[in-house]
Write a protein that binds this DNA or RNA. Structure first.
Lengths: 277, 277
DNA sequence: TTGACAATTGACCGGTTAGTCAATTATTAT
DNA sequence: ATAATAATTGACTAACCGGTCAATTGTCAA
């Protein structure tokens, strides 16, 4: 439906400079030139719009970065990574603003969990890139590098997106490549160890209730065609209602489900629910 | 008044995990065990409470960091700076959370301007520190270093304050000292030039109206004892209503006013208003 | 042209917000 | 003890919020 896209676009503009909470459905519908009722024909609630928006843009951004990282040789990789990330952020500048704002601000646990999920996907990509470029020798400082790279990207976001600093993207990427290489080659004091990372993992998912999980699963099942994945999901749903299967079987079913792109989110939630790492 | 402090303390706790907007005056008064009316005896509005809170904590944090930077010899300076900054942030962890949340989120232009003012004070301190430690040779990358140092502090904030990562502050400071030294000694591609800094300066103060300025000035005048500074402020107020004086005289008057700590904010606003750098 | 159906509207609902102010209570001076 | 004054209360207002639904409008086949 066209209407959905229109609402997402206009809402994004408002969210970008007011945030989720301060933007009312009224404002969105006015900007779209539609009535309040029409909004609720496209989205069940304001929260559903936000959730859909996060999915839509995050998937797009991650897909772009992943593609670039996969298809670039090691020599240029870091430069291309920075450059394409900045490009992608600039292309989706409104969404990036929203993300930065809401990452620290939203009270809604569902959004936070979702954002942290996509964040973990990006972290995986960056980590695999670091390992490819620098090899085993930086194993102990890989999380240091990860957080520094993320910081550099934040510097870009702050300067370019929030303060409109006149910065050349290629130059920016070059400069950050140099800084990253410096840190990778000479850092001797690792700051963030594997244990630290483990200790701070998933502080959010304890708030995901069975009811909420069942609701999302049922909705997804309805939208799926008959397949092994759908069958697996049905079994997982029954397991949630009345536990009967062994952990090994559950883990296997979750693995099955993960194959379908539209179920990745659910498999992530289930994995956390059953505390599988 | 004791009541004011009580309200600030309790409000800060709520602001830290809900943000300004999502925290109602009702919630604050309940937590204080006072009535809604009593709140408005201490603060004219919710905004005034927030404004007072920003001033109170920012001045405290900046004073601590400034004192440390001034009283430490160059050798240990960077380490002590990081360590004391982290200590200060930990001591004021609720306020730091508020600051991080609202820096990117608040719509209220007055708060943003205030935060960016205090931010510029901290930046000045960091820059003076960089120059003291590394001397003239890093002149071209001083803004790079500034932003990297700020990024490192952000990493601390994210890990420690938001994700409660188990990190040792001394170790953390040591690690960041190494990273900073590495970047200072080997960076060859300056990212942020003087021109970039100039181009992104003060995008906010265009929203400060004469009326708002007059309001703040009048309020401050009432609270001041007779002095050269008060006289200067009265003259500046009259100048705002009916321009008559030369730029040189205005600049001098602003310089006078700046001497009183309680007028620093006003002198900053006036300086921006008259576009003095 | 008619009638069945789908799309769209906006007045309305219950709830929450910041802020006010007449009424009440507490304190102090005499 | 009494009167005057200061401090405190909480019901109240007007505005706004997300969400609903009876009523209206638009569409199209017969």
């Amino acid at each position: 439906m066209m209407k959905k896209q229109l609402i997402m676009d206009k809402a994004l503009e408002l969210f970008a400079d007011q945030g989720f909470e301060s933007t009312s459905v009224q404002q969105i519908t006015e900007k779209c030139g539609i009535s309040k009722g029409a909004f609720y024909l496209s989205f069940k609630s304001k929260d559903e719009l936000i959730s859909a928006m996060i999915d839509h843009f995050m998937e797009d951004i991650i897909k772009e970065i992943d593609r670039v990282v996969k298809n670039t040789n090691n020599e240029e990789l870091l430069y291309i990574f920075y450059y394409e990330t900045f490009q992608s952020f600039q292309k989706h500048s409104d969404f990036t603003k929203v993300l930065i704002k809401e990452q620290t601000h939203t009270i809604n646990k569902e959004f936070l969990l979702k954002i942290s999920y996509y964040n973990s996907l990006i972290e995986e990509t960056i980590l695999s890139m670091i390992e490819r470029i620098y090899g085993d020798k930086i194993k102990e400082i890989k999380y240091d590098l990860l957080y520094c790279i993320k910081s550099f990207i934040s510097i870009y976001s702050e300067l370019k997106l929030f303060y409109s600093a006149p910065l050349d993207l290629q130059f920016l990427a070059e400069s950050f490549v140099e800084k990253t290489n410096l840190l990778a080659k000479h850092t001797t004091i690792p700051l963030i160890s594997e244990e630290v990372i483990q200790a701070m993992k998933h502080p959010l998912n304890e708030d995901v209730t069975i009811e909420k999980l069942l609701e999302i699963i049922e909705q997804t099942i309805d939208e799926m065609k008959e397949s092994i994945e759908k069958e697996s999901l049905v079994l997982l749903k029954e397991e949630l209602i009345e536990p009967a299967l062994s952990p090994a079987i559950i883990k296997g079913l979750i693995e099955n489900v993960r194959n379908k792109p539209e179920c990745k989110w659910i498999s992530y939630l289930l994995q956390n629910y059953y505390s599988f790492s």
